[in-house]
Amino acid sequence: MAATAGRPAGKVSWQNAVRDLRLWLLLLTAVLTLVNGYLIFMVAPTDAVLGHVQRIFYIHVPVSILSFLGFLVCALAGIGYLIRRTERWDRVAHASAEVGVVFVTLALVTGMIWARPVWNAWWQWEPRLTTTLILWFIYVAYLMIRQYAPTPQQGRTWSAVVGIIGFVDVPIVYYSVQWWQSIHPRQVIGPEAAEGSLEPIMAQILVFSLIATLALFAYLMLERVGLRGIEDRLSQLRREGNTN
């Protein structure tokens, strides 16, 4: 271990473990995604009414659900940061917000691709779409506030509070199809799903796709948290360089 001489061994092995985990997770995500693609296009039955376009549902539903998870993690990590005041909580919150924005963007885009042939319009101003777009705006504002804050310290605190208050919109998006007469299809999985709203084979493939997307989510989170750590280290070195 000549290359790492002068550093505590425990820290190095912990970093190595994370790097290994990241690689394994990447491999797992790749395999799951390939299998998922095969299941969606070769195994899943063609929808009797909607045809092939319905297959986008196996991507659309998981990315929507995982964007919710991202924002939940963001709100919880924000609370964690406000209590503990450690960088690690903020890194997790920042990463989960970014990954959440990517996933909710994917949810909006895949939804629009589905809506074009089915509703004959890319976009409808109906409750679920509108509230999802609002969700996107909230977390874009979350990322912007980090840039606009006068000091990084304020950026971390403010984004934490925006992440907490912004999470209020997530249950609204989920329940919007019940509260308002929405043309968006109802929940097919989760606590509000109706019994038998999905063919068993379709439900199984959806669950598989959810697992594959979860692996992707975990991988992106790990990668982004690590990158933020490097960014923090770089800016710290820059500051030290400036003062010397």
């Binding site: 509230t131 609002i134 969700l135 909230i138 504002a141 912007m144 506030i145 208050i165 209020v168 919109d169």
Partner: peptide, 13 residues
């Protein structure tokens, strides 16, 4: 500009 960007999305409900 920051106030409307933060305020409107959250107050939309």
């Amino acid at each position: 500009i920051l106030l409307p960007i933060l305020f409107f999305p959250v107050v939309v409900p």
